[in-house]
């Protein structure tokens, strides 16, 4: 059974159809890439998936459960974590706190425990802290855990955002244009990192503009244009599809 299954997901803004009946599936432990020219509705589609927009039509099933129209926080609890196209780290607080906030919905600490079972509450917070430290070590940000997020380099902030998303132990991780603003060396590092996550069992959806990156990491690629799904296939199939080249590469130089 696929982990994510969307059926004819549609999002309209007034008369504008941003996402037009997109159906797709994501299986466990695979990387699905979504590409398409600017304005193809990739981000709108992801926003509809993660509850930032309410879909105007269609259904979304996550691990067999109908989550259509759930608010964003509930979808996050179900196990979908995401990053944003234009970095949204919490800039004025420490790296550590950023990631701890990412773990929010996995810290099972009911409010009354703070007063009625303070020791248990402290223990749970400490466990979360240990987990987050391990995660930071894993991505190489442990030394910077006390610095404010805004003082990190751009690349580090990108990593932090992914790390924050991972802190919620997501079943599905959605990366929205993770390479925006990166140079090719940074991109290679990121590609390795994403593949490593997949090898550790993570399921990932990547939206990207950059052909090279998406070809390198994806197991399967979905091409979107004008809000609708246009093609789906393996990287090799997509690469050799003449119509995709026309639609997509017509706009961007072949790399």
């Amino acid at each position: 059974m696929p982990i994510l299954d969307t059926k004819d997901v549609t999002k309209q803004f007034g008369g504008l159809v941003a996402v037009n009946q997109v159906s797709m599936t994501v299986n466990k432990n695979e990387i699905v890439g979504i590409i398409g020219p600017n304005g193809a509705g990739k981000t709108s589609f992801i926003n509809a998936l993660t509850g930032i927009y309410k879909p105007s039509g269609g259904q979304i099933f996550f691990q067999g459960k109908d989550i259509t129209g759930f608010p964003a926080y509930k979808i996050a609890k179900q196990g979908i974590a995401r990053t944003f196209q234009n970095l949204r780290v919490f800039s004025n607080i420490s790296v550590l706190e950023n990631v701890l906030i990412g773990a929010h919905c996995r810290i099972d600490n009911p409010f009354h425990h703070i007063f009625l079972r303070p020791l248990r509450s402290k223990k749970i917070e400490r466990q979360a802290y240990a987990k987050v430290i391990a995660l930071l070590k894993n991505v190489g940000l442990e030394e910077k855990k006390e610095s404010l997020a805004k003082n990190l380099s751009y690349g580090e902030q990108r990593t932090l955002e992914i790390c924050r998303a991972l802190a919620s132990d997501p079943e599905l991780l959605i990366l929205d244009e993770p390479c925006a603003g990166m140079n090719s060396a940074e991109m290679d590092t990121l590609a390795d990192f994403v593949k490593k996550l997949r090898d550790e069992g993570q399921t990932i959806v990547v939206i990207e503009h950059n052909m090279c990156f998406i070809m390198a990491v994806s197991d399967r690629i979905i091409v979107m244009t004008e809000g609708a799904k246009f093609r789906e296939g393996t990287p090799a199939e997509i690469r050799n599809d003449l119509e995709v080249q026309k639609v997509y590469l017509g706009e961007q130089e072949v790399e």
């Binding site: 993660t50 509850g51 930032i52 608010p71 964003a72 926080y73 979808i75 996050a76 609890k77 974590a81 995401r82 944003f84 949204r88 780290v89 919490f90 800039s91 004025n92 607080i93 706190e97 701890l100 906030i101 990412g102 773990a103 929010h104 919905c105 810290i107 600490n109 409010f111 703070i114 509450s121 917070e125 979360a128 924050r164 919620s168």
Partner: peptide, 22 residues
Amino acid sequence: TRYGRAFIAIREDELAADTMGI
């Protein structure tokens, strides 16, 4: 606890906080 951090997350970026399950 996570409650205080959730408050700060809202101050910093409400939408991002929402997608963290808050």
